[in-house]
Amino acid sequence: MRIATWNINSVRLRFPIVKRLLQKHKIDVLCLQETKSPDEFFPLDDFKKIGYEHVHIHGMKSYNGVAIISRLPLSSHEIHHRCKKQDCRHIAATLPNGAELHCVYIPAGGDIPDPAVNDKFKHKLDFVDELRDWWPSARSAKKKMILVGDLNIAPLENDVWSHKQLLKIVSHTPIEVEKFTAMQKSIGWVDAVRHFVPDDEKLFTWWSYRNQDWRASNRGRRLDHIWVTKPLEKTLKRAEVIMDARDWPTPSDHVPVIVDFEK
C-alpha cells in the first residue's frame, strides 16, 4: 500500500500535477492539505475519472482544507475541530487494513515567534499542545494509526538548510521543536521517513517561492511528515520525497512525501 501526503496549495488550480503524481507513482491513498476549496467545488468527478472514487474532504473558501483521496475503500469518516475553530485542519478515515489515517494541517504560525504578540504563532503552539494531549486521551498507542500532513515544523537540525540561521525563524524555533517532540512522544509515534533516512542526512520537503533557483540554493525545510504508531512500524517498506515535483508546471512550494507499507 502506497500512501502520500502533499500540501498542494489549491487542489483545483493544481489538479493536473496531482493527477500526474497519482498516475506516475501509482499512489493508493493521497492526503492533501491547503486544498483551498469548499466541499461543493472540490473536483470529485476529476478524481473519480482516474480511479479514485473514495474521498473524504473538509474544505473552505480560499484557505486551509484537507482531503483524503483513495482508490481503496474508506470508512468511519471523521472531522476534528481544534482550538475551538472550524478551520478545516484535521480529518480521519479508516483504511481497509483497519489502520486509522489522520490528515492534519498544523497552522504555519506567521512570522514572529512570540505568542504574546503574534496570535497566529499562539494558535500554532496551542494546536500542537491540543494534539499532544488528545492522542493519548482519545486513542491508544496500540492502535494502528498513520498521521500525515503539513505539520509546519522542521524538528531536526538536518530538517533545515541552516540550523543556526533558522533558530529564530518560525518552523524551527526551540519552542516549536519542544512541543512537536512532546506530541510525537505522546503515544510513541514513529517518524516513517526518518526510519529510512538517517538523522544526519539533509532532508527537505519545502522550498520558498522566493527562491527562483531553488535547486542551486537548496534552502529547504522538512515540513511534511508521515508518522505511524508502533504496531505499523514493522510494515514500513520504503519512503521517498518527490523533489522533482517542485519543477512541475505551476508547482506547489511543497513536494509530495510517499511511504510504502506491506499490506
Score class of each variant (00 low, 15 high):
residue 56 H to G: 02
residue 56 H to P: 04
residue 57 I to R: 14
residue 57 I to D: 05
residue 57 I to P: 09
residue 59 G to F: 13
residue 60 M to G: 11
residue 63 Y to S: 08
residue 63 Y to P: 02
residue 64 N to S: 11
residue 67 A to C: 05
residue 67 A to F: 05
residue 68 I to R: 02
residue 70 S to R: 03
residue 70 S to V: 06
residue 73 P to S: 02
residue 74 L to P: 02
residue 74 L to T: 00
residue 74 L to H: 00
residue 78 E to Q: 15
residue 79 I to D: 01
residue 82 R to T: 11
residue 85 K to Y: 07
residue 85 K to W: 03
residue 86 Q to F: 01
residue 87 D to C: 06
residue 90 H to P: 03
residue 92 A to F: 10
residue 92 A to D: 09
residue 95 L to A: 03
residue 96 P to W: 12
residue 97 N to A: 05
residue 98 G to E: 11
residue 102 H to T: 04
residue 103 C to T: 03
residue 105 Y to K: 02
residue 107 P to V: 06
residue 110 G to H: 03
residue 110 G to W: 06
residue 111 D to T: 05
residue 111 D to G: 01
residue 112 I to V: 13
residue 116 A to D: 13
residue 117 V to M: 01
residue 117 V to N: 02
residue 119 D to M: 08
residue 121 F to N: 03
residue 123 H to V: 01
residue 124 K to V: 06
residue 125 L to F: 05
residue 128 V to W: 06
residue 128 V to K: 06
residue 131 L to Y: 07
residue 131 L to N: 06
residue 132 R to W: 03
residue 137 S to C: 02
residue 137 S to R: 12
residue 138 A to V: 04
residue 140 S to L: 08
residue 142 K to S: 12
residue 143 K to L: 08
residue 144 K to R: 14
residue 146 I to H: 09
residue 146 I to V: 15
residue 146 I to Y: 09
residue 148 V to L: 13
residue 148 V to F: 08
residue 154 A to L: 10
residue 154 A to V: 02
residue 155 P to M: 02
residue 158 N to K: 15
residue 162 S to D: 15
residue 167 L to C: 07
residue 167 L to K: 15
residue 167 L to Q: 15
residue 168 K to L: 10
residue 169 I to T: 15
residue 171 S to W: 12
residue 172 H to M: 08
residue 173 T to M: 14
residue 175 I to P: 05
residue 177 V to W: 10
residue 178 E to A: 13
residue 179 K to V: 05
residue 180 F to G: 08
residue 183 M to N: 08
residue 184 Q to L: 13
residue 187 I to Q: 09
residue 189 W to P: 10
residue 191 D to A: 12
residue 191 D to N: 15
residue 192 A to T: 12
residue 194 R to K: 11
residue 195 H to F: 15
residue 196 F to P: 13
residue 196 F to W: 14
